[in-house]
Simulated assay, not measured.
Amino acid sequence: MSDTAPVAIVTGASRGAGRGIAVALGSHGCTVYVTGRSEKVGDHALPGTIYETAQAVTAAGGTGIAVRCDHSDDAQVQALFDQVRAEQGRLDILVNNAAAIYDELGMPGNFWEKPLKLGDMIDVGLRSGYVASWLAAPMMVAQDHGLIVFTSASGAAHYSMGPAYGAHKAGMDKMAFDMAVDFRDAGANVAALSIWMGALATDRLLAMMEADPDKFGYLRDQIETPEFTGHVIWALHSDPELHSLSGRTLIGAELAVKYGIQDEGGRQPPSYRDTHNVVPHVHHPLVIR
């Protein structure tokens, strides 16, 4: 591994989980490319822009670089990776976090009674993660080092907010598994894995909790800061035994215990294993080519 600052791309990092992960990686000295579509206040109903996140990464101790990128446009994503290759000559960490999330996701009703646009997360979320990984892999294999992370959740293994959301999460878990098979087959020192994040203290969820405390108030005892997963990702990247975990879907709260990571205020967020009796699927080792 190079002695230079690790280089990371965090997609969908204007706000929410992506912003927190980017800032946490910055606190560990990483150069972080922050992608998203929000460039100015008003570009999205929720606060946050790629430039604000990039500034926060730098303030945390890293180097934040904002890149406006619509992850539904393959040409823009290709340009992002071309920029990283030209400016840094390497890529150490890719966090596939961008997803088309709409407020209507949590509305009552069955999937056919909700807007068709909820299916967009199969494009920006699932396919976009495949495209970014497809572009990252050649760089990582050539340098014989790298970590690809998919930000997932327990909805991969139980019903949560409908089939589009479930397909998105389950698909990311499976892509991590299959990509790890290919990296091993190539003899490459590159890991791919998926992390189940807990309920996150994002502007969106905090507003939901305030609007309906009877429904969402219980989450106050379980919530994770958006930065929490970023510290877990850094610990994974630094783990000499990382490749024994490649291909797996892991619960972030359990990884935090393993690596001695606590959340803000010394909290230890609970695992889905304890709160919901849910664990990730274990994929079979059979390989058919």
Rank of each mutant, 00 (worst) to 15 (best):
K169W: 04
A170H: 08
V67T: 09
L135N: 09
V124R: 03
V84K: 00
Y51V: 05
F81W: 10
Y159S: 14
Q143M: 10
E52N: 09
A137V: 12
L91Y: 02
R85C: 04
R127W: 04
I122W: 11
R90D: 08
D103W: 04
A75L: 14
P138M: 05
V77C: 11
T49C: 12
G166Y: 00
G61W: 14
A167L: 13
M161Y: 11
T58A: 09
V95M: 14
A56S: 13
P115L: 12
G166F: 00
V67I: 12
K117S: 10
A167G: 12
A98I: 01
L105W: 03
R68K: 10
A100E: 08
S154T: 07
G61R: 15
G166L: 00
I101V: 10
G62C: 11
M161I: 02
V141T: 07
G162N: 00
R68N: 10
M121P: 01
N110V: 02
L80Q: 08
D173E: 09
D74C: 02
T49E: 13
A86F: 01
K114Q: 12
D73S: 12
V124Q: 07
V124C: 05
A100Y: 01
Y102G: 06
F81Q: 10
A59T: 12
G61D: 15
A59M: 11
T49V: 04
S160Y: 06
M139P: 04
V149M: 06
R90I: 06
Q55E: 15
A157S: 10
F81P: 11
Y165R: 00
T151H: 09
G155E: 04
A164N: 10
A56L: 13
G119Y: 03
G162I: 00
D120V: 09
E52M: 07
R85T: 11
Q88I: 04
Q143V: 05
Y165L: 01
D144A: 08
A153F: 14
R127L: 10
A79R: 12
G146K: 06
Y102K: 05
V149C: 06
I93F: 13
R85Y: 05
V124L: 11
R68C: 07
E87C: 07
G61C: 12
Q55F: 02
A99S: 11
D74G: 01
K169F: 04
D70P: 04
L126P: 07
D82L: 05
D103T: 05
T63S: 13
G155T: 02
